[in-house]
Design a protein around this nucleic acid. Structure first.
Lengths: 95, 95
DNA sequence: AAAATACTTAAATATCTAATTAATTAAATT
DNA sequence: AATTTAATTAATTAGATATTTAAGTATTTT
């Protein structure tokens, strides 16, 4: 289980998350939005997956990636604790 | 202006922020909570300061550090945009 | 079954980051 | 004025991170 903080500290990975917010995508489709190679992207996706920030599911030959809220909870909790942000999500986020 | 994401990605720096939440502190006092040296801590504080996550003010021979909410806003905004968290801060955080 | 497509893993490398010791600046105390 | 205390800057080093090319695995198509 990798650190979500390390995962999200990279600008390219944050951009990947922004893309996945709009719709689930496979690596090849995601890669079109970046300058680096597919293996490079694959490494980023693995880091996001290990941090529970994305989920992958196989669809035949393709692999679809989608957002996973789980890994974000620990981070939100930190913002609540340190800066006093108040979150409206009594159910989904146990703080 | 350094990246708040990079600043917060380090566990020691997050611990510093947790300490400053309780009370304002100077580098020597903060350093007692860690294993590394004062110059090491000084580097961490500079990174937090450059990211607008802390503020420093001189008090004679001492330098007091305290939390700065400013640098956290960009990050919270990301959580709102990507994972749909809802924040209760209509005034302080323009989303 | 051969070829093409989609993706990951491996190996190598260049850059970034965190930490240390030594030197420097500045304020308070003796 | 000399010394102690507080903190930062500089130079160095070890380890982590991002990226590339080349090789490998799996699925679909011909």
């Amino acid at each position: 289980m990798g650190s979500p903080w390390k995962a999200i500290s990279d600008g390219n990975r944050r951009k990947i998350l922004m893309l996945l917010k709009k719709k689930d995508m496979n690596p090849t489709a995601i890669a079109k939005h970046f300058d680096f190679t597919l293996p490079g992207l694959s490494a980023h996706l693995r880091i996001l997956k290990d941090a529970n920030l994305v989920i992958e599911r196989k669809q035949g030959q393709h692999v679809l990636y989608s957002l996973n809220k789980k890994g974000s909870v620990e981070m939100i909790r930190f913002f609540v604790n340190v800066w006093g942000y108040e979150i409206n999500s009594p159910k989904s986020i146990p703080l």
